[in-house]
């Protein structure tokens, strides 16, 4: 379903950060911010909570260690005990390398999968962009026009222009884009 957005574009991150601060202070909801590179401090300015990806990483890693040690113990001590080079069945020092590798493998693969899922990214993603230059040299603040009347939209446009936006436009998207808070859910 078509959906309209107000896109205010800046040519530098400094005026954009300034605008975020002022617009939020004026009580206007920012739908999203789109930048060509991670801008330092933007999470705090937008009031975005810390990512919890590292918690997932720890859980995956611990699973990997446990899985490796469990399998090697089951196989080498119970299922098919063999003496190799006079070493005991339970040869912990010799199992450290594989345990370590599986910890890393589980943690890395698991966390990356969570990352792609949470970011809503896949090769089937029929992506729409607010503006082609937002991945190159423009910093965009996005406002949801469906949730504001034309008077408020004009006020926002005026503010953005005052804070140094080089271009302000209305962009109609084929689909509704999730807001920053919805992306967090």
């Amino acid at each position: 379903m078509a959906h309209k957005y107000l896109v205010g574009m800046f040519d530098d991150e400094v005026p954009m950060m300034n605008a975020i601060e002022k617009v939020r202070a004026a009580g206007i909801a920012i739908h999203d911010a789109v930048t060509p590179f991670p801008v330092h401090g933007i999470d705090d300015a937008l009031g975005a909570k810390e990512s919890r990806l590292h918690t997932a990483g720890f859980v995956f890693g611990a699973t990997g260690t446990a899985f490796a040690l469990f399998c090697m113990t089951y196989i080498s001590v119970f299922d098919w005990p063999n003496v190799f080079g006079g070493k005991p069945y339970f040869s912990l020092p010799a199992w450290i390398p594989i345990s370590f590798e599986l910890t890393v493998l589980f943690c890395g693969v698991g966390t990356t999968i969570v990352y792609y899922l949470r970011n809503g990214m896949s090769i089937f993603n029929d992506v729409e962009v607010y503006d082609n230059r937002l991945s190159s040299d423009r910093f965009g603040l996005i406002f949801d026009l469906e949730s504001m009347d034309s008077g408020e939209a004009d006020r926002v446009s005026g503010m953005l222009r005052d804070f140094g936006a080089v271009e302000i436009k209305t962009q109609e998207m084929r689909n509704r884009q999730p807001s920053m808070d919805e992306q967090a859910s």
Binding site: G85, P93, A94, I96
Partner: peptide
Amino acid sequence: WFSQFMLIWYAN
């Protein structure tokens, strides 16, 4: 620590 210990333990 592990490298030194394990290699000596292993070669025996």
